[in-house]
Design a protein around this nucleic acid. Sequence first.
DNA 1: ATATGTGCAAAGGGTTTGCAGATAT
DNA 2: ATATCTGCAAACCCTTTGCACATAT
Lengths: 141, 141
Amino acid sequence: MSKEEAIGLLRSRGLKVTPQRVAILRILLNGGHFNITQLLNEVRKIEPSISISTVYNTLTVLVNSGILRSFEANGKTWYEVKRQSHVNVVCEDTGEITDIYVDTSFIENELSKRGIKVKDLNIIVHGDCAGASKPEASNQR
Amino acid sequence: MSKEEAIGLLRSRGLKVTPQRVAILRILLNGGHFNITQLLNEVRKIEPSISISTVYNTLTVLVNSGILRSFEANGKTWYEVKRQSHVNVVCEDTGEITDIYVDTSFIENELSKRGIKVKDLNIIVHGDCAGASKPEASNQR
DNA sequence: ATATGTGCAAAGGGTTTGCAGATAT
DNA sequence: ATATCTGCAAACCCTTTGCACATAT
């Protein structure tokens, strides 16, 4: 029942709870990566009349409040729930994006040594996933 | 005299040597990161009549031939000469991109263990560079 | 000579903006 | 009650495409 989780998250950041926001957040809480078009299609199954500008607005709000993170790949912006840091692998043939959990804290350490405060770390790999060992949440192009 | 270097690189990949290609490559060989608009402005100092589609064409050719690499940040595509792997830090306030050299082979090793052939590794950090220790080539928004 | 590259203009796709009406608090 | 959010349409990039002319080999 991720609906309660979504509502709780919104309230915890002082954001108004609207059906559109709850629907978007629920989809993302289930895991994976979504671009705007995918999200619009998914959300419309729940909230058929939602507009694309509401999706954009909501995602901006959720990123700014620290619930989501975004990164750019293949000419689009991708959104995911902010959890432990990982590597986003963009599979060359399918366009699928797969999370691979690798400890990346040494990068942040190295950067802070040099006076850079890391707000967000994106590791994006383009590669061949044909032989990958299907580990985690993924999502298509 | 980076002109010879540019010409040599083009020939070594079997690419036709045109004044436009040489001009673009010379600019990038001097170091740093450029988006299309910046590159167009720079190249026009040397080749005033160059068109934006030639810049796009050339960059695609240079990326495909393995001379350049590209990554996306701030809604734009950035190009740089393919050299040793590093972290691209996007400074939040200025939009400047700075190279920080950190050994990232650990990540590639970890990924190949899981059956992923890394074609390109992009590490993009958004952060606060106010206190950074000005290390390497950089470039503005 | 001819395969390839260049430049122009138009089109495409993703994202942002402005604003009137609707809704959460 | 009112500050905020939503949905629509138009505008705004950045990037790609098609094609005639020019150029490198």
